[in-house]
Structures are given as structure tokens and as C-alpha cells.
Design a protein around this nucleic acid. Sequence first.
DNA 1: TTGCTGTATCGCTATATGGCGATATAAAGT
DNA 2: ACTTTATATCGCCATATAGCGATACAGCAA
Lengths: 120, 120
Amino acid sequence: MPKKAPSKPASTAKQLPAAALELIAHRFRALSEPVRLKLLSALMQGEKNVTQLVEAAGTGQANVSKHLAILKQAGMIATKREGLSTLCSISDPAIFQLCEIMCAKLKDEHAQRSKHLEGL
Amino acid sequence: MPKKAPSKPASTAKQLPAAALELIAHRFRALSEPVRLKLLSALMQGEKNVTQLVEAAGTGQANVSKHLAILKQAGMIATKREGLSTLCSISDPAIFQLCEIMCAKLKDEHAQRSKHLEGL
DNA sequence: TTGCTGTATCGCTATATGGCGATATAAAGT
DNA sequence: ACTTTATATCGCCATATAGCGATACAGCAA
């Protein structure tokens, strides 16, 4: 695929420009809070409105609203008004991959820890 | 530190227990800072000592040391002393996958934005 | 020992952010 | 109009953390 070579200082080029790193970091940060992961986890079962998500998250409505805004800004969920409700849904399937990889990592490490304890 | 969650209302069972979500969030958080991503980016080219990483990161040595500790605690890098130096290396190949996915996401979004500007 | 280098840790400040209550806005029904 | 419901936003507080300088520690050389 023909990738355009933008005007980049080819000499001192790191593989990723600093601006890109900030964008990437920003997106990872959206995934770095348990409440937000819980929201995404709930949304993996399908579209939900904010009230349902408040229930699922187990925290206040104001917080959920803020967290949803963060997820939305990170391009991970989409929202649409429907009457009184705001329906939320996962907008980027990459999230599934990301969480799967991270979960696999956790399971591996857990298995390692269990192994280390076997001899006790 | 988070106060201990009281006995869970068993009704709202989740696919992932809260403790797991915290662990996952913790790992994503390790990837949520530009300096740490820069360190990982540098380490993708191979083992490096702290001084080299300080150069690559463009921030103070104290910060780099702290960031490396965070990455280490998240199980993303390994360190070994060798003489005066501490050699660091990526210990979990999953990081490559995670960053690839996130970068692809960014490229997609960038392409989208470019498209929206085409008609102007 | 002393000195030098590389790394880790401490103390501090400033900023960012999560959680909460209160309030504002939006949309629909009366 | 007013009320109710659903969501968003605001103000405040407490905590977390990135960055910095100074310092402590570790390892090697003379």
C-alpha cells in the first residue's frame, strides 16, 4: 500500500514522533481506570444507556458521565441520543484485541505465580 | 489506597471480577505516559542501559529511573546489573502487539480526518 | 582508603484526576 | 406553563504522579 512520506526530519527520526507518542499515551490512559474498563466490559454485551452503565459501574452518575466522555474522546465509544436516553456503544473493535492481549498477559503471570508457589 | 469494597451485591455479576479490572487498568496505565512509551520504543531496538535511555527519553535521570521502575513492576521490562550499568530489555512481547494495535487505530483516525478535509 | 561513574531514592512542588454533591440542560409527558 | 426523567456539567476536595534537584547507594579504578 502506498504510504505517503510526510515531511519528516528523516535524520534524527525516531520511529515515532513525540506527538504520536502523546496520542498513543492518551488512548492507553483511557483504558487505565477500572471504572472505564468496567464500562467497556458492560458495553461488550451491547448498546446500553447511561443509567444502565451507572448500575454496571457501581459509582455515581456524574462520574460515569465523565468517564464516558473520556472514552468517547479517545474514540472508543460512540453515543447517540434517543429520547431521554443516551445510548452508548463500542465504536472501535480494537478494544477487544487490546483487552484480550492484556488479559492473556495477566493469566500468564498468574500461572507463573501459581507455579512458584507449588513447592510450598 | 482504595478502601476495601464491601461484600459485593451478587446480583450484578460481571464477566471480569473487579480485582482483575484493577490489574488490567494498572498495566494500561504503565503505557499511558509518553516518556514510558519512548523508553519502550527505544528498547524495541534492543537492550540498553539507563544512560542510553536517559538520552532517548529527553528527561532527567531521576525520572527515567522512576519510569523504568513502573515499567518493570508492570512486567514489561526486565533489568539486570552489569558492572556499573543496569541493562534494560523488553520482557513481554505483548507490548509490540499492543502498540501496533494502538498505532493502527491512530492511523485510521488520521486517515478519517484527512478524508473529511478533502473537500475543502 | 579516596575518587569517579552509573543508578536509585528522597523531598518537594505543581498539576491532573477521580469521586462526590449540587446544579444545569435536555427531552418527554401533564 | 410545570413535572419528571435522563444526562451533562460545575465546584470542591483528596489523592496520585510527573518533573526537578539533591543525595544516597553500588561498583570499579587508582
